[in-house]
Design a protein around this nucleic acid. Structure first.
Lengths: 201, 201
DNA sequence: CCTACCGATCGGTAGG
DNA sequence: CCTACCGATCGGTAGG
């Protein structure tokens, strides 16, 4: 009584398992350091069996990254983007493997010929655009540089948190940064050095 | 007339060449992705010849990192540590290979079994300590978290700069961050609501 | 989804 | 500082 639907469901579940294990392995040793044989063993199958599911190593990497961004996007609630970001950071502190994945791979992918280079270039462009819009809504006089600094802070905090998890409260640091950044923006506005037009900039 | 001194000088020069090429290669592909054969070819010698000079791959990596920090320390002038940092960032923008090296390796080395893990853990501890002292001297109410945020900003800006060099002015962003951070500290002081550092760091 | 295999490449050593 | 070599491991394919 094995229906076709069950077969597909089993295949999908197996693929999810593979993507989850790949998050861990790529996070531990990067794309170049990861071997398909090691990953296959962790998933309980042979390495040609693994390749049957994922195509090749590059496709696997891009599938892992895209899947992780999908899951993160689904988690983000409505409301202010800057507040949502602090919540996202708080949740990431319970997912060391995910933080490792993006920290290690974004650095590795700065090499122009890295298979995830275009992925990360597009991802940073999109993130900076979105946060710049949020800063503009909040009346920040330099929304785009402020967005770049915020993204930079996030990335840098992750490195220190991965090295000394107990010493770094990522969400608290992001919160403090946002507070001082927005307070400075307000001060500049009330000094008459900004555009006191209610934040249309 | 080849004196012993000349022989040693030649050996030292060869070693310097190897370390410089290793900066580039490790920066391009990381420690795990780098091969001694590729590095040897770039230096114009066989890979056993390379090993004669550097011992093994791990020793080479640690020598490269230590040498780079030595050179950076020698470049830093006297005076305020925070101003000196902005100058250092400005100079780094002319040394893409060095920025790549530290960005890629600090991420790779978050793995506890990485050969440079202890090096980076100690390096971050030292850097945060020094900058926290500078923030304390400047009267910042939360010097240690502020130092962590500053280091994080530096690291994160490097990633974005490596991806889009023309779009990111690292020194200017660090300058702006320091200005708002220190202005907020002054405001907190004159408000009489200076808050402690909350135990972070 | 497996076994068996391909050519390529790895870090390091032997021996001179 | 070289040639020659070691055992191990890599991503991917053949063929079923």
């Amino acid at each position: 009584m094995t229906s076709r639907g069950d077969g597909y469901a089993k295949g999908r579940a197996r693929r999810e398992l593979i993507l989850d294990e790949a998050v861990r392995l790529f996070g531990e040793v990067g794309y170049r350091g990861a071997s398909l044989r090691e990953l296959a063993q962790r998933c309980g199958l042979s390495h040609p069996g693994l390749l049957h599911h994922v195509g090749d190593k590059q496709s696997l990497l891009l599938a892992v990254l895209a899947r992780r961004d999908e899951l993160a996007a689904a988690e983000v609630g409505a409301g202010n983007r800057l507040d949502a970001l602090v919540e996202l950071v708080r949740r990431n502190a319970d997912q060391r493997a995910v933080v490792e994945l993006f920290t290690v791979l974004s650095a590795e992918a700065t090499a122009p010929d890295h298979p995830a280079h275009a992925f990360f270039a597009a991802r940073y462009r999109r993130t900076v655009d979105e946060l710049a819009a949020a800063f503009a809504d909040a009346g920040h006089p330099g929304p785009r540089p402020a967005a770049r600094r915020l993204v930079a802070l996030l990335d840098g905090l992750q490195v220190q948190w991965l090295l000394e998890p107990g010493d770094v409260d990522m969400a608290a640091e992001v919160r403090r940064h946002l507070d001082t950044e927005l307070a400075a923006a307000r001060a500049a506005r009330s000094d008459g050095r900004g555009h006191g037009d209610g934040g249309q900039g």
